[in-house]
Simulated scan of single mutants.
Amino acid sequence: MIKLFASDLDGTLLNAFHNVDRTIARAIREVTDAGAHVVIATGRTMLSNREHGFDGLPVEICGSNGAIVVGREGILKTFPVSPELLELLVPAFPGICFDCVLLDGTYATGSRELRDRSFDADPPLRRIALRGMREAMAATMHFDTPLSYLLEHEVYKVNCRVPDRALGEELEAFVAEHADLVVNAPFSPVMFELTDPAVNKGASVAWLARHFGYTEDEVAVYGDGGNDIAMLERFRHAYATVNGSSAAKAAAGHVIGHCALHAVPRHMVATVRAQRHRAAYTRIE
């Protein structure tokens, strides 16, 4: 039986507008009322189940690509990046605004104007779809953060957008050269999502399953992009949305419907109902 359902957010659990709606909320409640766990496995920073539209829904979180694991009552485990990485990375790329995730907020190394320019190359429809999320994130961020401040605190994830191809290749080379300090698992080609090399969604979901006493065969996972690959490859019950990348579909081996049609919440509910039906049938026998 599946006892833990872990899903990415954008392009997977959320609807086409990157929101939680009533269908998604009802599905989470039905699954958790049945005794299973719903885990948000996301690249976003999520420190409680009252963020990003979940409004207190009974979920656990593997946020920041798995660097911060959060239970319903608070943080369970964290995986910080090495200070050595920050000492090397930030001075080497002064033209990039790095968003550094701490437990009390996100601290950007550059100005808001520098960060906003990294979105200018997005297609118009994507800029519209993500405008609300961008503005909400920027409203809570701290800009022009000195490196000295970051080195005094634990940083769990470093994000940046690099639409300039040449600059992106330089950063890719840096990551490859320092593979002992950092791994990059982005959801889009222009994104860099940097964590400790031991961190990924799959490892954190597996840690959380063990925390609850479940085996990995009792876990189902859902994803659509690059930062989901490790998670989709790790678990036998792995599903990619049809709108997902080719790599995600190949890693999962199972493809379900489109996020806009609530494929993931519907699949979770169908799985729970099928399990309940089998259990009732077994009792009758």
Rank of each mutant, 00 (worst) to 15 (best):
A179V: 05
R50K: 10
L76C: 08
L102P: 01
H211G: 09
M191N: 15
A247W: 01
V205W: 05
I40F: 03
R266Y: 05
R72G: 12
A280V: 07
E87R: 14
F17H: 15
G63H: 04
C259W: 10
V242R: 15
L150G: 04
R117T: 09
A280Y: 06
G35C: 07
E218H: 00
P163M: 02
V81P: 10
V20I: 15
L13D: 05
A6T: 06
R44F: 01
E30Y: 09
G43R: 00
H52E: 13
L13E: 02
I24F: 06
A36W: 04
R44N: 10
R165Y: 11
I256E: 06
H178V: 03
L130P: 00
M141N: 03
R44V: 00
H153A: 12
L103S: 07
V219P: 09
T42P: 02
P80C: 09
V264C: 07
R112Y: 09
P123T: 06
H178P: 01
N19Y: 10
A250N: 10
F192V: 01
L232K: 03
D120H: 11
I2A: 07
E193F: 00
Y222E: 01
V69A: 10
A108Y: 07
M191S: 14
G74Y: 10
L167R: 14
T215K: 05
F79S: 15
P83G: 08
T12Y: 06
P124G: 04
H37K: 14
S148H: 06
A176L: 13
F119N: 12
H153M: 08
Y156V: 08
A238R: 00
L151S: 02
M268V: 02
M137G: 11
L261T: 14
A179M: 03
R283K: 10
V221T: 12
G226F: 02
R131C: 08
L57W: 04
Y239S: 07
S118W: 06
G71Y: 06
V70C: 07
L13M: 11
S64K: 03
L194D: 04
K201C: 03
G63Y: 02
V183H: 00
V39E: 06
R29Y: 11
A16V: 11
S7A: 10
L167Q: 15
F93Y: 11
A25Y: 04
V190L: 12
H277M: 13
A108K: 10
F192D: 01
G71W: 09
D116R: 14
T78D: 05
